[in-house]
């Protein structure tokens, strides 16, 4: 604050010799304090949004890892691998879209952990059948759909609301596949998520 006040005084003293660029700089440094503090608080809000989206990126990394574990397990029949790869592809697109948003907001997208990390946190050692894989997928997709819906309210940038709602819808669509595969009871009560 003090620093920019000093700058402004300096520019004002030299005003007689200012070029067009100098005049622009003058206009910028003379921005009222209120506007500067709005900018500061919106930068803070952008930083907060980036952190929240980073949790979603972590979720996508975990999902991508889970489908890698599934595809590497030898338990997914050849007839189903294309579908599993398509679903995993959606998660990769989510990851990329979220990472682009985090970067745009001035944040740093979180990195993926290793497959070994995901195998441990998802208890992959207990997976011995296709049904186990379908159950895990249903659990992750359902959790992700709910998590995305929970992100709408805390995100300040309304431009991000559609993005996370789209992702919630994608995850819910994936979950429906596994509900059918597992012949689970389809929930009678709406809303199904959130």
């Amino acid at each position: 604050m003090t620093e920019s006040n000093t700058n402004r005084r300096n520019i004002l003293t030299g005003a007689a010799t200012l070029s067009a660029g100098g005049l622009l700089a003058l206009a910028a440094s003379a921005t009222p304090a209120a506007a500067r503090s709005t900018r500061k608080s919106s930068a803070k809000a952008a930083g907060q949004d980036a952190e929240l989206l980073n949790a979603a990126i972590a979720l996508e990394h975990q999902g991508i890892g889970a489908y890698d574990i599934a595809l590497g397990s030898g338990l997914v029949p050849a007839s189903a691998t294309d579908l599993v790869k398509t679903i995993q592809g959606h998660h990769k697109q989510h990851r990329d879209d979220l990472a682009a948003a985090v970067t745009r907001l001035g944040g740093k997208p979180v990195e993926s952990k290793t497959i070994a990390d995901y195998a441990k946190e998802l208890n992959a050692a207990s997976i011995t059948s296709l049904t186990d894989i379908q159950r895990l997928a249903l659990r992750l997709e359902t959790g992700a759909a709910n998590a995305y819906l929970g992100l709408i309210a805390p995100l300040s940038d309304s431009g991000l609301h559609l993005l996370v709602a789209q992702m919630a819808a994608d995850e819910a669509s994936h979950a429906a596949i596994f509900i059918l595969d597992l012949k689970e009871a389809y929930p009678a009560k709406a809303p199904l998520y959130g």
């Binding site: 803070k44 930083g47 907060q48 952190e51 929240l52 980073n54 949790a55 998590a147 929970g150 992100l151 309210a153 805390p154 995100l155």
Partner: peptide
């Protein structure tokens, strides 16, 4: 109620109003 209100800069957003 609001994780970022209690701890600004946290990565958890989910709120239970």
């Amino acid at each position: 109620k609001s994780p970022p209100k209690l701890v600004p800069g946290t990565r958890m957003g989910l709120q239970l109003p």
